[in-house]
Design a protein around this nucleic acid. Structure first.
Lengths: 345, 345
DNA sequence: TCTTATAATGTAAGCGCTAACATAAACATC
DNA sequence: GATGTTTATGTTAGCGCTTACATTATAAGA
């Protein structure tokens, strides 16, 4: 193992040129005579020469490596973001590595030692579902990190964060779903959301409320539930809502924060003997791979998270300062139906 | 942005010692007087000094970065492996980055240029579900890579691969599932498997056949299906099997290669009007997060993929040469039931 | 007190590249 | 043919560390 790596010197002495010339063909500079270039190229091939990205990074200050901070990859939502980012990074010749949330949430003057030591060329941070109490500390950590490397944010980015960012327009998305449901005749529509109250004006619950207003429907506190954004939490929230409400007040449609929550809702509905979509429509968000295989197949919104990840990488590398939005797509499946069906029964 | 990074020289001149001494406290060497160590430490804190892992890597030849090659992260099975590996790597002070399968499957003398240029300290390669025709080329690529860095394999590793490895004992796992099902009275048990025929003696289908023999059940070719290991493929395989068989020959139990396939089977059963588990039991493998939320909740095997990933990292870093196995756990849920139920109807 | 082992620190040579600068060769220009 | 330009190549000083080796200060042994 670990054969002695050939260096730029080996190539240079083999061809009989200086290392600068070898470096020039390595970097694709134009001011090298075709003949020399060819000879160097061939020697490189012959020796199976691979320049050390470490050494290149040390001198050029460009490491061609990026970082991404995500809550957890086990949630397919984040796996999609990561995949999108990874593929784009690779295309552009970059390597990307994952850092956990804890990298940000550190004490005092030690934010993300590892992050800084790596001399990354850029960092993507997903700030979705930020617990409000952490908000300030996280923002401070982000500002510190920015002194060392460009930072692009993704997810549910509050507008007062002065960072380039790419996200879905969650509010608009939710408004359009509300329209979808109200057009189907639904009037009792519940929203089973994420952790935070209303600190974040970009979040999905805002669109829910706007949709309510647009349809001239009353806001009903017991239809707006907060949870943890997981399947377990979704089920618990739904259980609690159903159990605390008389059956006649049960909503006829549920908007789940994401597909995970929707899975929990479906389960809860099943256990309460509620037929979906006949008695109750359920709509999720993110369009996870399993959505079509749930029972009933879950109507969901494809939020193109891979594109979010890819775009973030592009912004990072191009250095543009933008706050961008990625489009979404409604995936109609069997879990939503017009209200009329219900009346027939 | 990009404040000028403080270097070992800054610290040295601040404290009034040589850079060697600073380097010594950086590396935690013991032969430094407590007084000097303290002074250096404080200067480092004061300057918020972070050593450049790039420079350290260049001299020490240890980059503290690993690579992992996985088919695709969107499949939660691989996301679990990655997560396990990532967390373990981080604990040990390593960074890990993902490389796509295409890194291996390259032409001639250019296997994974990026992989080698990065001067990784080690590489994990997941060789699961290897299409047989690629087998040789992949093995060759692995052997080449091994000249540059330690390699540990995970997944379904053929025994003739002379690499350290960690995997599930798929054959034993399947045998035990077969026992589980036969004890429930099932005799017509189908296996909906992965892509390859029988090239790999460790794979799950081997256990299936052994289980058949152990229970003195006949081998029925039409019960052993090959597919692509995805939900779509699972559904297609199952559809095909059911449609080609008279109803009386329909299996009473299905073993799916993984939960993805099982999801497809569940769907297919539903469309064929088969009640699960009353008329047909279905068992998956991998225990994905969505398994409990399928209908019916899917009985599956938790194969502890995170542990697989973590163990692989440990082997890589410790340098041990071992071929290890990770235990599994049956997660009983509602999709499997004794055959007796069926007769009652 | 003088050696000799030991602990603490310093010196300097790389690691494998990049990049600024210097030089040499080739070509125009008048 | 002398001079200025352009093009191709060489020289060299880092980048920010580690590490072998040298040196000095300190303690121990005779």
């Amino acid at each position: 193992m670990k054969r002695e790596n050939t260096t730029i010197y080996d190539i240079a002495s083999e061809v009989g040129v200086s290392i600068a010339t070898v470096s020039r063909v390595l970097r694709g500079e134009t001011n090298v005579s075709p003949a020399t270039r060819e000879k160097v190229q061939q020697a490189m091939d012959r020796f199976n020469y691979r320049p050390s990205s470490i050494a290149r990074g040390l001198t050029s200050k460009i490491t061609h490596s990026l970082g991404i901070i995500l809550p957890k990859l086990l949630n397919p939502h984040y796996a999609m973001i990561f995949t999108g980012a990874q593929e784009e990074a690779r295309k552009l010749g970059y390597t990307i590595s994952l850092f956990p949330w804890s990298s940000l949430d550190t004490n005092a003057y030690n934010p993300a030692a590892m992050l800084i030591e790596r001399r990354l060329d850029g960092l993507i941070v997903c700030v979705e579902y930020l617990p409000p109490e952490h908000d300030e500390r996280v923002l401070a950590a982000l500002r510190t990190l920015r002194e060392y490397m460009p930072v692009v944010l993704i997810g549910c980015v509050p507008p007062w964060y002065d960072f380039p960012a790419v996200a879905n327009n969650n509010a608009a998305m939710m408004r359009s779903i509300m329209e979808y449901l109200t057009k189907m005749g639904h009037e009792k529509i519940a929203f089973i959301g994420g952790a935070q109250e209303d600190k974040d004006p970009l979040c999905r619950d805002v669109g829910y409320e706007e949709g309510l207003r647009a349809a001239r429907l009353p806001y009903t506190a017991s239809y707006r539930i907060y949870g943890k954004g997981t399947a377990e939490a979704g089920k618990a929230s739904m259980d609690e809502m159903l159990d605390s409400l008389k059956q006649e007040y049960w909503p006829t449609a549920i908007i789940a924060l994401n597909d995970l929550v929707a899975m929990g809702c479906l389960q809860s509905a099943r256990e309460h003997g509620i037929a979906v979509p006949e008695q109750m429509s359920v709509i999720g968000c993110d369009d996870l791979f399993c959505a079509p295989y749930l029972y009933p197949p879950l109507t969901s919104i494809n939020t193109h998270q891979q594109r979010v990840g890819a775009r973030a990488v592009q912004l990072l590398i191009s250095g543009e300062y933008k706050q961008e939005t990625v489009e979404w797509e409604l995936m109609e499946r069997a879990s939503c139906a017009p209200i009329t069906k219900k009346r027939e029964e």
